[in-house]
Amino acid sequence: MNAWTDIMLVVLILTTFWLLGSSRLASCIRICAIQGVATGLLGVVGGGITIRVAAISLAVIVLKGLAFPWLLSRALRESNTSHEVQPFVGYVASLLVGVVILGLSFWADSCLPSLSHVASRLVVPVAFALLIAGLFLIVARKTAVNQVLGYLVMENGIYTFGFGVVREIPALVELGVLMDVFVAVFVMGIAIYRINRTFDHIDSDQLTLLKG
């Protein structure tokens, strides 16, 4: 049981590295979908499946594995932007940053007092790593789609953290959070569409009309 949780966590980290190193937007979206599914499975493989856990995991898998990728690929298809990631920080450098982030999160975890409810020793550092790597992706990539992906990675990190550390969050809260994330990505998708229609591209680094 624990081993499966560990494997899912490793999948989360590997997909994050993969995302840091990939250059095609379409494959980035696919990787993010894989990560979303792995996040969803985390709840199921942890053992002790209740209806609540199953429902939430299913919702996560459907949303992050199917709905978001579909939404984002549609935004990507309809935009006449280049389908390359266009990083501020190169892929190799990003991967190295990813390694540093991973090391830092393990270090940070060792500094914190251990949490009694943790399902696996890896949960907290992996969640931190996803959180920071997501932030890094948002900062280091130019296209709006990729920034949304960064946001999703971050969100996955937070979800992982929540599932591994506080198993008992009321379902209402959890569904509310999920709902918010869904709406967030939805709204971002519409925003990308509109930005694309107005600017002819979705590179957020060229959104420089407002300064000072």
Binding site: D6, V10, I13, L14, F17, W18, G21, V92, L95, L96, G98, V99, L102, G103, F106, R121, L122, P125
Partner: peptide, 16 residues
């Protein structure tokens, strides 16, 4: 570099 990252991850996991 990805391979090196895998190694690092493996190393960190072993430590853990």
């Amino acid at each position: 570099v990805g391979a090196a990252a895998l190694s690092v991850l493996g190393f960190v996991l072993m430590l853990r």
